[in-house]
């Protein structure tokens, strides 16, 4: 058996087919259960409601009966930053190195015991993926019993966000190591939301590995990313065959819209 278990260079990412997504929310719940996400008695104030993946509802802004809607699930975008140097908006501003860019996986981490709650990262993140624990998490009596030991429970005063279920990556790698394999297979590491999605809208894998499904999918002419012009280089891609949905990925000025639409059609 070869010494060491450093696997090859990876860039994990996700492709979400918005034409398949039904907005059912199974991904959100699977994520909450997998990652010990807390809940409160009233979760209707969505700004204060902690979710690692949230499903947004978009509409084309047209009146009845030409209205169309589309759902958009939004996990952490795990931005690579320009040149893939790990200058993600949040990583760049964190004074505590509590959030860092994994050069081996491309995953943006969040280390709760380092975080001291300054929330610079929340301001820096253009995608609103980060949530602050304003309160200590409290589970109704008995419910702590379902908490998973794979993910630490966050305390008051720290920021949390989606980790692409990094613990699943660690477990898969450990398993591979024990079995004497150097690398893990695509199916061995899948996030909880990907696994749960009843519509099979989410595809997860290594964006730079041609053997993985995401490799091809991300090159689809229908693929787009959120706020592309900020050059955050997110690793979550979206697919839609509807132009207005692709256009909803960024805030275009009225005069830009026509030009961008042309570009998006051509692509």
């Amino acid at each position: 058996m070869e010494k060491g278990h450093n696997t090859t260079f990876k860039r994990y990412g996700m492709v979400i087919d918005l034409d398949k997504c039904t907005g059912c929310g199974a991904c959100m719940v699977a994520c909450m259960q997998e990652n010990n996400v807390p809940f409160k008695k009233d979760e209707t104030d969505k700004i204060r409601s902690i979710t690692w993946i949230r499903v947004y509802k978009l509409n084309n802004g047209k009146p009845y009966p030409d209205t169309e809607i589309c759902y958009l699930p939004r996990p952490c975008q795990h931005c690579s930053g320009m040149g893939d140097h790990g200058h993600s908006p949040c990583v760049s501003v964190c004074p505590a190195t509590a959030t860092d860019y994994g050069m081996d996986t491309g995953i943006v981490s969040q280390i709760y015991t380092r975080c001291f709650g300054c929330r610079y990262c929340m301001v820096a993140c253009p995608y609103h993926v980060r949530h602050f624990n304003w309160w200590d998490p409290v589970w109704p009596e008995g419910m702590e019993n379902y908490l998973s030991p794979n993910v630490s429970v966050r305390m008051r005063g720290v920021v949390e966000k989606c980790s692409f279920c990094y613990h699943r990556y660690q477990l898969a790698r450990e398993r591979a190591f024990v079995q004497g394999r150097k690398d893990i297979e695509e199916h061995e590491y899948q996030t909880a939301c990907t696994q749960a999605c009843p519509a099979k809208a989410i595809t997860f894998g290594d964006l730079i590995n041609p053997a993985h499904a995401v490799y091809e999918l991300k090159n689809s002419p229908n693929a787009f990313q959120l706020l592309e012009r900020l050059q955050t280089y997110p690793k979550v891609y979206y697919l839609s065959d509807r132009l207005w949905v692709r256009m909803a990925g960024d805030n275009y000025l009225e005069e830009e819209k026509r030009e961008m639409a042309q570009a998006k059609i051509k692509r």
């Binding site: 929310g25 199974a26 959100m28 259960q33 379902y146 749960a196």
Partner: peptide
């Protein structure tokens, strides 16, 4: 600690709905 869909089940083949995924909250 977690409920996922059962792989190769003729009805849901690994998928799960939001209610099924919340099952442990009913248990505990």
């Amino acid at each position: 600690v977690k409920i996922d869909g059962m792989k190769d089940h003729p009805v849901n083949d690994g998928g799960i709905c939001i209610l099924g995924a919340s099952g442990l909250q009913y248990l505990y």
